[in-house]
Design a protein around this nucleic acid. Structure first.
Lengths: 232, 232
DNA sequence: GGGTGAACGTACTAGATAGTTACTTATACG
DNA sequence: CGTATAAGTAACTATCTAGTACGTTCACCC
């Protein structure tokens, strides 16, 4: 019901805890790690679904196999729980991004691949995109205060920077493009497609996430980015 | 304090009502139109600021020169007030869009102009962008139910369609581009820049709305769209 | 100059909601 | 084996919040 949509560090669902190095969990009854991660998983989904103010601590507790007391036992307050959800979501996504390997491709193909992977990520993790939207409504006040997330650089940007450097060295890409700007171009397209799906559909009667149009938008994004990078 | 950031139909602030054809408002004391529009203006800002669940009816009332009773008198419920805010916001934006006149420009210049005007709109009406984000968190359930907004087509899309037709007729644009896709490209860039400003800044330490970078992003968008339309 | 209805204010209520207290049970460990 | 402590439950409370009951005032019209 409330499994996380990005790979969690502790396994999201049924009884998947069994944390690697730590204390072996007792098979029966109580299990701190499992309880904590189950609360986190349910809370992630609830906050993503209803927003911070719209989510209810009582309902999060009800969807867990434990009680509200445990939420306060492990997380202290609704706000701290929300921050934990944000941190968990961001670290999970970063772990995914770090896996992408495009060093062996030529610059143009590497850019297409990066754009496609980003595109797929956004489609595969709607809860994450929703959490980001929600956090922007709050002007990123929680994100800015989190010291866990403060220094956390974006691996996608590092990869992008290296691709651009190679492309420039080979004389295939323009010299004056900023990696962050390219990232904005890619993210803007992907985020808009998922985050604004509902109002867009209400007005234009077009579901941007219709599977029939998926490859069309995926290649369109690659085209747009490459054309920008290779323009005279 | 709470003036609307898009042109309202009734004048937002002090005592600007004095509705055109209707009954001349008494200069003193009570004035239905003024009260109603003042509630709407304050509510627009509050909902945009805090979201639907986060906004408080009591606080909206407090920031008005009238009382909570009047909110329920004119709008019925918190939800109906929110729908009224949405409808007011969308009709206001549409009225603005209808003004753009690019028929006298050649297709390429017209596209640049359309992109630039869209770009400016997003920057000038942050409350509208926030309301759209909030409505997307709610999966556009209110927008979809509003019969006022149901048939309301997007004038920007009509303009875009005509520009593309002219460009194709003159052999300057590719034949296989969909106006809605071009709209996605433009909107995606503009919406991302404003709506995701805060989390983006927290992670990349770059304010996408820094005035020093404004023209850079404005021309970048025009370049990207034109390159997409004119690619071999 | 008084009747009428729309516009408005005050004070209240029922229910929801974040957070707490008091108490119980399982588990690790000397 | 027994006890300290981590893990857990259920019931409670203070406060907040959407919505309402009821009374009052103003503008208008005859």
């Amino acid at each position: 019901m409330a499994s996380l949509q990005w790979p969690s560090m502790e396994g999201s669902g049924q009884l998947g805890a069994q944390v690697s190095g730590a204390v072996a969990a007792s098979p029966t009854g109580r299990n701190a790690d499992r309880t904590r991660s189950e609360i986190l998983a349910v809370a992630s989904h609830e906050f993503a679904d209803k927003g911070y103010a719209g989510a209810r601590v009582d309902e999060i507790a009800a969807k867990t196999r434990t009680t509200k007391r445990m939420i306060y036992y492990y997380f202290g307050s609704k706000e701290q729980l929300y921050v934990a959800v944000l941190e968990h979501a961001y670290t999970g996504i970063r772990a995914l991004e770090q896996q992408l390997d495009v060093e062996h491709l030529d610059p143009a193909q590497a850019i297409r691949r990066l754009a496609a992977v980003t595109f797929d990520h956004h489609e595969a993790h709607p809860d994450f995109i929703r959490l980001v939207s929600i956090e922007n409504i709050h002007r990123a006040e929680h994100l800015a205060r989190s010291e866990l997330l403060a220094g956390l650089a974006n691996p996608a940007l590092d990869v992008l920077t290296r691709i651009l450097d190679r492309g420039r060295a080979e004389g295939r890409f323009r010299a004056d493009v900023d990696p962050v700007d390219v990232h904005i171009l890619i993210s803007g397209f992907c985020v808009f497609r998922t985050a604004n799906r509902y109002t867009f559909n209400a007005i234009f009667q077009r579901d941007m996430l219709d599977p029939a149009r998926r490859t069309h938008y995926r290649t369109m994004l690659g085209d747009v980015v490459l054309q920008y990078l290779t323009a005279r």
